[in-house]
Structure formats: C-alpha cells, structure tokens
Design a protein around this nucleic acid. Structure first.
Length: 562
DNA sequence: AAGTCAGACAACCGCGAATCT
DNA sequence: CAGATTCGCGGTTGTCTGACT
C-alpha cells in the first residue's frame, strides 16, 4: 500500500520539494555535504528521482544510485524503496482472503521465508515486507485471541503435501525440489518446509480437532508443554539456521531452527555419542532413506525453529523466549476458534524459565537447555528398572527378540503396553509411564515440533496397543502404527522409520545403546543397556513415545547428517 | 476531549550469500 | 584464492492512525 506517510508527504510537500527534494527533510537529511545519508520516510521527490534513475539505468547497482542520482540515500535504502514501493506491478492494499490463505499456507511450509513467499505466483505484486508485516500482525492478533497460528486445514494440507513430497521425492532437498510445487517456481524450498509443518502441527492446537483425539490429561499436559516448541515464524535466528544448515547439509535445513540449547546439546552430547558409536547416523548410512522428515522433525524443533519459534526455524534463541509467546496458541487446545483456558503468557514464561522442581517433568525433559533431559533420563532409568521388574514375564518375550531383529517392532507394542500397565507411582512426577511419555512429547518437541500434536492414537491406545504380537501381523501393525504415527508424529516417524527403513540400523542401536550407556555412566548404563537390548523395545518404544532417550540417538543422527 | 492501546505500515539494521576484483 | 563489494533477506524499530476508555 502506498505509504500513508508518503501520501501525507506528498500533500505536504507539493512543489517545494520538487525543487529541493533532498534538503527539505524534517527527519534530518543531508545538509548538502553529501556525506550524510538521509534516513526516514521517503518523499515523493525522492521517489521521483529514484524512479527516474531506475528507468534510465535499470535495477541493480544500488550504491550507484546515491552517487549518480543525487539522492542522499544509501543503496540499500534505495533498493528497499524501489522494491517495496516504487517498482511497477506492485499490488498495494489490503490482502484479499485468497492472499491471506496463500500466505498462511506458504508460511506453514516455508516459515519466515518472506522473500520466497512474495515471489510465489499466488502473491503477485506483493512484497516480502508486506507479507512479513501482515504475518507479524496476524501472529499478534491470534496470540492475543489465543488462537493457533494456522488453521487446521492448512496444517493438514501442508503436512499432506509434505508427505506426498516425501513419498514422491528424494530425500535431498534437491530432489524434493522437483516435486514441490513451490520449488517448481524456482524456489528452493528446504526441508524446513516439512520441519515447519511438523513444528506447526506440534505447536498448533489442532489436536482437538482431529478425530479420535481425546483431550486427556496427558494430552493436555503434553500439549501444554508445547511452550518448548516454537513456531517457525519465531524460530528465527536465521543465523543459527544457516549455520545448522551448513552443518547438516543444506537439505536438512531445518535443523538449525531448533532450540539453540538443543543444538548445543546435540553438538555436545550427540557428537559424543556418535563418536563413541563410531559410526554415523543411520541417515548417514543410508542417505537415500527418507528419514529426513523424522530427523527434520527434531530439527524442526527448529523447532522450532521457527518459534516463532521458528522459527523458522524454528529458535531458541535460546533464551530469547520468543517461543512462549508463540506457543501460546499451541497450548490452547481449544484451538482455532474455540477457546480453552490456557496459561497466561507470564506464567508460561515463568514456567519455562524456571520450571517447577516437581510436576514439571515434561519441562525438564523437554528442555535440553537445562539438566532436565538428564534428569529425565535418570528417572526413566529408574522407572524402567521398576517396569522391568514388574513385567519380567512380558519382557521375556520382548527380550527374546534380538536387538537387531526387525521383529522388535512388534515388541514395541508390548513394551508400550508395559509402560501403560506399569505406571510408576513412585515417579516424582506422579505419572504413569504412559503419561510420562505423553508428557515427554514436548520433549521431542524440543527436538521435534510435531509433538505437540500428540496423535490421538498415541494416547488412545494405538501406540500402546496391548494385543498379543502376532508375528504374521507384525508387519501390518508396523505399517499401521507407522502410518498413523507418521501423520501426527514426526518424532514417532523417526522411530518407526528406523524400524521400517533401517532394519540394519536397528542392529546399530545396540551400538548406540553402548554409546549412550557410556554417557550415562556405569549405573545407568547398565539399566539402559539392559533395557535397550533386552527389552529392545525400550529404545524404540521411547522413541515412539518421545522419550528423552530416543532423542539422543535421533539427535545424533541429525547432527551426523551429511 | 484527552489519554491509552493496538494495528498497520515503512524503514532501518545486521547479517550472510553471492559476486566482483 | 582472499578480500572487498554488492545484494538480498529477515528481524526489529519507529511512526502514524484509529478505536476505545
């Protein structure tokens, strides 16, 4: 839209400025020295000069504009002015409903990639600045209203697109580019798209709108802890994102958006694990696999990234705590139109900054930035021990399976059942293992953004099915579980993908267990290794349940991605 | 009518990538 | 190949305006 200020300027500066456009500046222009560049609003006279210059010389070489046109504006400012206000074919005015929808959808896919969004064919004449401002305003508005950032349909659509893309495209961003409609436009849509999607899903309280989803206490807690997840938009920290991208290979772009703290954790701990493992991540072993999403999810934590968390990638600016604000909506299970009581922003912030010592296990676990993860691991170890003892019979079945046996996936359910059955009353958290897992969802949320959208199945029995494992049906069960989990839980996908696509890797998990055990120390290591190998499901079950344990290997994989 | 607040918008700033020398 | 320059992007800030109290 035309700058109101400019309009007023136009009115206020009719002819005078035409004569001395550069001097009659209220905001402090150059005094004729020429060395001082003017800042502030552009006048119509300046606009005219710039337009004239561009007509004669074309776009580009903006620094030359200041030199040759007489404008006391830096090239940067000239470029911006031209791009946002003066160039032809600009479409000013309020966004139409269609445009808004497009923006929402694009943002769900791209995160804070304003320039790409602006370049999208569906937004002709729109500038990145316009879109950005619109979005930021929208965020504020929705946050204030306690609404999710994205409408459910957008979320689902984006996810489906992502899935379709994943199914048809390669793992690498380059490959996917061929399938991504957005990329068809020449845009290089990074994996972040899916990451963001994941993040969005996690963040967005769509859950309640999904079928078969019960807003159980678990769910509430799990989602409620979403504050640890951020929306792509907030995720920002482009810097981080880029660094991460470099680190993990461009195709895995979203990684960087994750929590900074998480990244730190990843960088430190995961690398340790990876090194001790002596091998690269499963992904490394098979770059052609399509696990990217799974890992991206965690990255997505870039989740959250784009914490608005984003931010973009997701952010974590670390401690920027922008997330909470964005997460707000996420905590709102009522979501999108409905309103459920949600914690005050202040309380959320406070919670994040100083999680309660007890009853906030999810917080601790979900936030690598504190010792929560380790604490969670410790507690898990204890819990597992308890469970192990109480379900030795069942575990025997599971343990009979070799860690490397793909059939482990079947034991997964059993184990999960175990978890469900073997709540840990002693848990400081006072939650059953299942609920504990559920609450850990946010954890992976740290690592994966999707968690916030705990699949109903996960909480309603699918993931924790207790039916006897029928070897013949194991595969189907795996498929079902994977599929269903895939939809709503990228983090789950991570685990399921391991099962389905990385059967070989499963064997490596024993190695991974050793590595993790190494990190945990003798005492815990024993428990962990025992569980990981004996009940095999443990690690995978955790993974499916977003247990902190699972995050470790997952993170390692991420960090090791080529 | 004055003050406050939020929305909307424009512009600036910092950073990184790309390109040039 | 390294340094310098240019360009572009995203985040943030500042200002204006209208609604509300």
């Amino acid at each position: 839209m035309t700058c109101k200020r400019d309009d007023s300027d136009d009115e206020m500066l009719p002819t005078d400025q035409a004569e001395s456009p550069l001097i009659n500046e209220s905001s402090g222009g150059s005094s004729g020295g020429g060395s001082v560049l003017k800042k502030g609003p552009w006048t119509s006279a300046e606009d005219a000069i710039l337009v004239d210059y561009v007509k004669k010389h074309g776009e580009g070489n903006w620094n030359a504009v200041q030199k040759h046109s007489g404008l006391f504006r830096c090239g940067k400012s000239c470029r911006l002015r031209w791009a946002n206000h003066l160039r032809p074919n600009l479409r000013k005015g309020a966004f139409t409903a269609e445009e808004e929808q497009v923006i929402i959808e694009l943002h769900a896919k791209m995160g804070n990639k304003w320039a790409r969004m602006a370049a999208h064919v569906s937004l002709p004449g729109r500038t990145d600045n316009e879109i950005k401002n619109y979005w930021n305003t929208r965020i504020k508005r929705r946050q204030r209203a306690g609404l999710p950032l994205y409408p459910p349909e957008v979320n689902v659509q984006a996810f489906q697109e992502g899935q379709h893309d994943q199914n048809t495209g390669g793992v690498d961003g380059e490959d996917r580019g061929q399938h991504d409609p957005l990329q068809s436009n020449g845009y290089d849509i990074p994996d972040v798209i899916f990451d963001n999607l994941s993040a969005n899903q996690g963040i967005l309280p769509y859950v309640p709108e999904l079928p078969d989803i019960s807003v159980s206490n678990m769910l509430l807690k799990g989602v409620g802890s979403s504050p640890y997840c951020t929306l792509p938009p907030m995720l920002p920290r482009q810097k981080r994102f880029r660094e991460s991208t470099d680190l993990f290979h461009g195709s895995s772009g979203s990684v960087g958006n994750g929590f900074h703290s998480f990244e730190q954790f990843r960088d430190d701990t995961c690398h340790k694990v990876a090194r001790s493992i002596g091998l690269s991540s499963p992904l490394d072993s098979d770059p052609t696999t399509k696990n990217s999403q799974s890992f991206d999810v965690i990255q997505g934590s870039h989740s959250l990234s784009n914490g608005n968390s984003s931010a973009s990638e997701p952010t974590y600016g670390a401690l920027k705590l922008e997330l909470p604000s964005l997460q707000y909506p996420e905590t709102d299970l009522g979501s999108w139109g409905t309103s459920l009581p949600r914690p005050l922003l202040e309380s959320v912030d406070a919670f994040i900054q100083s999680p309660p010592p007890s009853g906030a296990f999810e917080a601790d676990c979900s936030s690598p930035r504190n010792s929560g993860l380790l604490d969670a691991l410790l507690h898990e170890s204890k819990t597992l021990r308890s469970v192990k003892n109480r379900s030795s019979d069942k575990s025997s079945n599971s343990s009979s399976a070799t860690p490397g046996d793909k059939a482990d996936s079947s034991t997964l359910n059993i184990c999960e059942t175990e978890w469900e059955d073997c709540g840990d009353p002693i848990s400081p958290l006072g939650h059953s293992a299942t609920s504990l897992f559920s609450e850990h969802t946010p954890i992976s949320a740290c690592g994966s953004s999707l968690d916030e959208q705990p699949p109903a199945e996960t909480f309603t029995g699918i993931a924790v099915k207790s039916e006897p494992v029928d070897p013949a049906s194991t595969l189907d069960m795996e498929k079902e579980t994977t599929t269903r989990l895939n939809f709503s839980r990228p983090d789950v996908l991570l685990a399921s993908d391991w099962l389905q696509q990385s059967s070989g890797y499963i064997k490596e998990q024993s190695i991974m267990s050793d590595a993790i055990a190494t990190l945990l120390g003798d005492d815990l290591a024993t428990d962990y290794k025992h569980l990981a190998s004996g009940t095999s499901i443990s690690s995978q079950g955790w993974g499916l349940n977003s247990c902190p344990w699972n995050n470790m290997p997952a993170v390692c994989q991420m960090s090791d991605r080529p």
